[in-house]
Design a protein around this nucleic acid. Structure first.
Lengths: 140, 140
DNA sequence: ATGCACATGCGGATCATTCGCAATTACACC
DNA sequence: GGTGTAATTGCGAATGATCCGCATGTGCAT
């Protein structure tokens, strides 16, 4: 897993987008984020490396990256959108309602059931969203 | 299914809220809505019965009703929030990405799997959100 | 009936996000 | 290494959804 930022840059170039200074910084930040930051947080992190990047550009680039399928945008419970790079494998989210921490998980069985349900009603799934809002189980 | 509006009124009163002309109309509209309207749409329907109800009041009342657990607020994919009265039975949503239509469904198997997954990671589910964004299957 | 806390209606305020537009700049081509 | 052109950027202003402040109105317990 050498350089994730490089992979993102390549993906961006492959999508026919130009590599700019501001995009490079944003990609580095995205590559280094293990959490799920929102646009304002990303902007802050980007500014820490290069003060010459506007929030508008962060938004524009995030939108572009999302359209190109390079990153994903999540809107948990009506708050501002949060982003993450597209992992090779799809996953859903579990949000700890007390700490706000996000845990990723995946269940092929659930995925299969979803497809079945949609099919029964005559639909194909374009994408889905499964979020479990949880609380750490009381340890006795 | 006698008078749903009456039930809502009772719930509102039981919650210690006052019954006003504007709330009565909104409750009637909510009781009669089989779809999942947003605040603007609800306001429009309310105005059709009584022009003297402001959008701010619709918002305030919807928020109050949600807090009291009388209605539910859903935020599908970053669009404006949509509301529905709380049904006795929980259900999830399937949103037609082309028409915006919402279909309700429920799968006990999925619910069970969700609980299992959370339990495995040491969590209890507080609530969840499962949305399938779908497209009508091409009928050959 | 009466009072007063709760509601309402405005318009203005927020918050996240987007847009218009003029100034830059990446990158293909020479 | 120049050059041209279309993609990008940075502002600040525009949006759209939703909420707030405050003065006025009104349910409802007494």
């Amino acid at each position: 897993m050498a350089n994730k930022a490089r992979d993102l840059e390549q993906a961006l170039r492959d999508a026919g987008l130009r590599m700019t200074r501001q995009r490079a910084v944003l990609l580095e930040v995205l590559a280094g984020a293990s959490d799920h930051p929102d646009a304002a947080e990303l902007h802050k992190r980007v500014q820490a490396r290069d003060t010459g990047v506007s929030l508008a550009t962060v938004y524009r680039t995030l939108t572009e990256l999302e359209v190109q399928g390079i990153i994903q945008r999540h809107s948990f419970d009506g708050a501002s959108a949060r982003f993450e790079t597209c992992d090779p494998a799809h996953h859903d989210h579990m949000i700890d309602v007390e700490t706000g921490a996000v845990v990723e998980f995946r269940s092929d069985r659930i995925e299969r059931l979803q497809a079945e349900i949609a099919a029964e009603l005559g639909y194909d799934i374009v994408h889905h969203r499964l979020e479990l809002y949880v609380r750490r189980r009381d340890k006795a």
